Amino acid sequence: MGRPRPTQIKAALARSSLKRSLHLAPPFLLDDYIPRYQLLTSVEASKKRSRAYAHLRNCNLCPRLCGVNRYETTGMCLIGANVKVNVIAPHFGEEPCIQGHNGSGSVFFSGCNLRCSFCQNHDIAHQRNGMDLTPEELAEWYMKLQEVGNVHNINLITPEHVVPQVALSILHARELGLRIPIIYNTSAFDSLASLELMDGLVDIYLPDFKVWSPATSRRLLKAEDYAAAARESVRAMHAQVGDLCFTGDGLAKKGVLVRHLVMPGKEAEGELIMKFLAEDLGRDVFVNIMEQYRPAANVGKPKRRAKVVETGGVEAAQKDGEVRYAEINRAVTDEEVSTVRRAAERAGLWRFNDPPKHDGFAI
């Protein structure tokens, strides 16, 4: 075989260069990253502190709009002026780009502003289990996660009902020397006021967009306005930090990663969520279509026994074997997950939390 001509070599190099530049340097790759809270001026930080204290005195930082003074009483979330934390530790159950090799510095807050019938963390979210911490004490735990745990980020799990305290803790941790990204890991039942307070403090928003229809939200989440609030919230999150971006080590540093837990018989709602994401946030939004639903919390529990008066005045006990939320009392099927995935692809979405098809990280 003869030696390739110079023109053939140039053409091959051009093709190789084009492929390499597209693969190694997409618009989602960062050379370096400084957390957003590090860039706040002292005046901006002071204003956020003042707003946080004001919101605690008249709590309106979630769609429940309880309006209570958190120093004196509690609202729907059952949490007062301090936070109650169930677990603080490096966590290895998140997306690879979040947990990395050293883990995500996860902070599991007790309490929640939703009452999901199927909650996978119901022992934490539906009960007041854990230790009470002031914002300053919480900030000190962030530092332990960074210095001792060597984690890649601080992952605030279910923070919707403790936004003022979280804002204060981040601002205090900044003064202590925190230097890793902040993740806001939420059910998406947030308010615009809470997201405005978190703007400049959060690097990665990790909303779980659960269901679409008001009827499903009312029955399963006890919040008929959930989907409307989630749509508004996800738009605001994306407007703040944009699409998910990575540094060269494959770790996510800023942007939005949307989760959707596929539920039994609810794949049509998942399809609508995917369509919304593509049309409103753009086709470059990073999505994790999750298949790990399992019956939990109140799902599958026996219905409360009650006496039923039949025709003729004869009393009969409720039928044995009846369970609560029977329609979702099973695992999700592969076909249901595939249906949502196909809908996402039809909508034009292409950035999924899939294993990479090459050596290295999927970015």
Rank of each mutant, 00 (worst) to 15 (best):
D359K: 04
K301I: 09
I289M: 05
S187E: 07
A228H: 11
T216V: 12
W141F: 03
R305S: 10
P6N: 10
R179S: 02
E160R: 07
E269K: 07
L195P: 08
I157G: 04
V337C: 13
D190G: 03
I182E: 01
D32I: 01
F276T: 00
S187C: 10
A14L: 10
D31N: 14
K47V: 06
V299F: 09
R341G: 03
S169V: 09
R15V: 13
P164N: 10
K254I: 13
I183A: 06
L133W: 08
L29M: 13
N288F: 03
K303L: 15
L195N: 12
A229R: 14
A227Y: 11
K301W: 11
D359F: 14
L30S: 02
R218T: 01
L251F: 14
V340Q: 04
L30F: 10
C66A: 08
E310K: 06
S117Q: 12
G248E: 15
A173N: 00
N129H: 09
L13G: 04
N58K: 14
Q127I: 00
A239F: 03
R179E: 00
P90I: 03
V299K: 10
Q240M: 04
T74E: 13
V211D: 02
R20S: 12
S46G: 12
I180H: 00
M131C: 02
P302H: 05
E269F: 14
D132F: 13
V202M: 01
G67A: 04
D354R: 14
L168Q: 12
A362P: 05
K301M: 13
H358V: 05
A228T: 15
L168T: 09
F28K: 11
A230L: 07
E291D: 15
I170W: 02
R346K: 14
D32P: 00
R70Q: 04
T41V: 05
N113S: 08
V211E: 04
V332L: 04
F189N: 11
M237I: 02
A215G: 02
N82W: 11
L197N: 09
D280A: 13
T333H: 05
Q146F: 00
N121Y: 09
S50G: 01
G248N: 12
Q146T: 00
H161K: 03
L197I: 06
T158I: 12
L168R: 11
Q99K: 12
E345S: 05
R179W: 00
K266F: 15
M290T: 08
E336K: 10
A52T: 04
R57K: 15
S46K: 13
P96C: 09
L220M: 13
T339D: 06
R351L: 11
D284E: 15
T216P: 06
E336L: 11
C97S: 13
P355W: 06
S338V: 00
R115V: 02
P96V: 10
I204M: 05
L145P: 10
V83L: 04
I157P: 01
R115I: 01
D359C: 03
Q165W: 02
S213A: 06
S117Y: 00
L201W: 10
L30Y: 08
P159G: 13
G80C: 05
G300N: 07
N153R: 00
L30I: 08
H91W: 14
Q318P: 00
Q292R: 06
Y184N: 07
C62Q: 07
F28D: 02
L251Q: 13
V340D: 08
A297E: 11
N298P: 00
N60D: 05
R304M: 09
S233Q: 02
H260Q: 09
A239P: 02
